[in-house]
Design a protein around this nucleic acid. Sequence first.
DNA 1: TTGAAAGCGGTACCAG
DNA 2: CTGGTACCGCTTTCAA
Lengths: 360, 360
Amino acid sequence: MATIAEVAKRAGVGVATVSRVLNASPAVRDQTRQRVLDAIADLDYAPNAAARALSTGRTESVGVVAPFFTRPSVMERLRGVSHVLAGSRYQLVLFDVERPGQDSRSFRDLPGALDGLLSISLCPTDEDLERFEAAGTPIVLVDHPHERVPAVHTDDVAGGRLATEHLLELGHRRIAFVGDLEHNYHGFTSSAMRRVGYQEALAAAGVDPDPALTCRTAHGREPAAALAGELLASPSRPTAVFAASDTQAVGVLEAARELGLQIPGDLSIVGYDDIELARYAGLTTVAQPLEESGARGAELLLAALDGTTPIGHQLPVRLVARSTTSAPGRSRGAGARQQHQADGRDRRRQARQDGNRVRS
Amino acid sequence: MATIAEVAKRAGVGVATVSRVLNASPAVRDQTRQRVLDAIADLDYAPNAAARALSTGRTESVGVVAPFFTRPSVMERLRGVSHVLAGSRYQLVLFDVERPGQDSRSFRDLPGALDGLLSISLCPTDEDLERFEAAGTPIVLVDHPHERVPAVHTDDVAGGRLATEHLLELGHRRIAFVGDLEHNYHGFTSSAMRRVGYQEALAAAGVDPDPALTCRTAHGREPAAALAGELLASPSRPTAVFAASDTQAVGVLEAARELGLQIPGDLSIVGYDDIELARYAGLTTVAQPLEESGARGAELLLAALDGTTPIGHQLPVRLVARSTTSAPGRSRGAGARQQHQADGRDRRRQARQDGNRVRS
DNA sequence: TTGAAAGCGGTACCAG
DNA sequence: CTGGTACCGCTTTCAA
């Protein structure tokens, strides 16, 4: 690979001039620039990114950390991020945080190696944050609110409430919750928040919560199916299940079918996220703009990289009633495209209408 | 951010020693090592990736270029790549090649900035290849065969044949093909190959091909739905459609339902890829191991990075009959879990059984 | 408008 | 085992 020195020599100029041409500096005579350009073409020269990074202190790349890359919801967010970043000069470096520990190692080294960081669903520790701040590396959070860091998030508690209220309104009283294990490292809290919303809604309706109906298991369709298998085999089985994610909801759906239960006649099911699959499974769910959240997060990060101080904001959630919910004991769907709007958006930011439009 | 020099000073040693500790060289007395380690901890030192890259010539990162990041099939492949890479020391730099041109720019600079490259579904030009070869940067292809470059691929022609034969066996004669536009830059050829398989199967069955039934449109559910809408409204509509991807098949499915057609009674549909959605849509499809292909590709690349010269191989495809196909005019599914096995694997490599196992 | 030279923060060779 | 030092390739003053 040719170096800048070779280009300079061939063009009969100094390396500084080549550098100027490379960086589109106006302070180069046209004639000179052309000689340099020719030399670059002749030598098939391409600048060395590492050398440039070392010299400038910037790497032209942003990191995206995402847990559970496996999850469709994360994939959809990533898609939004990728699209926005593809239009910028930054490269996207992906950190798949599947197992704990893996990330803490990375996080330490990251500030120096990256110009910015987008954290999806994960919340960096205060220590991590300090490190980034010290290095002047901006961070933006997606799917996790934060006091000090710009974040694009939704109100998971409100979402959980929404799902549960939908079931309550249909007449259900024995409503189970199926969510993730909550001893997550690094504050992956959405399932827990949705559970809180669930409990709030039950309490508000004066329904006595049955602890046996609040279930948690490893994320994924199969664990949820296994759990639901037991739950639904019980004589005191619930008439409805609110799952903290569509993936888990589909697991519950499978388990129910396995047991010969009619959906929604014998069991109503509400999911969360509205991933593409939910639409095809006809799943009633709490929808949030996944791809958009990623895109917004990336835009915020780009803005931060540009020197501005972006402020985060909340995206709306809404209930999408499909065919997995109905009144208990009935066999028809919830009927008439019933859609509750409930964006838990901060009222003080109500004005940001344009920023919060829901694509439907 | 602390530098190696500061650490050295604080530990009372030379920078070389610190570097040795950093790189786990055994040639350091334990006592000295400890002093250095302490200094590192005190200063909260983290090595600078750019400096290291400049010095060693290696960046510890591999690029993954993927077109149409939007496609579920690509996402599933990426998932496999990510999982394997997460277990290595390499970082994953993602290149989303949505629009042409975007990539050619990148490709030029890539060899220097990356230790290796994994190209998904895309085929680099010979020129690109030369550049990588010259830079000693290994490339591995996923979903695209190649003579000179290790690749993990499937036989798309065989897959197209498989789908079409399935329909022919059911008794269909008017079989349409719905695929991507074929004037793709950079050799994204799978749709075209599947079409060839379709045509071969028709010819082998002695069915006169009707050019009006071979359709191509932009990739995606909606374009396919629009196309199918016209195709199916025609009085001489086909009794079956083979779509070059599940996404397009779902579009056809929607269009058919829109027209009030019974599936599979009035129209049989076969997709391709067996993405997660296919399972829920009950779509008959040609399955290929998507996630596995990504994982395999990543393993190959890791092997190449390790100095070995890996050889690519072919992964099997098979038909999965679900409920969108039946004999023409009947209203039931294709029945008894009929599954054709047809991995178009190179017979000379037949021995590599272990490497080609199908997960079902 | 241009060139010389001093870093940027490591690695690795060469002495000792 | 350890330290000094010459690069790695580019950017960016500083002078000319």
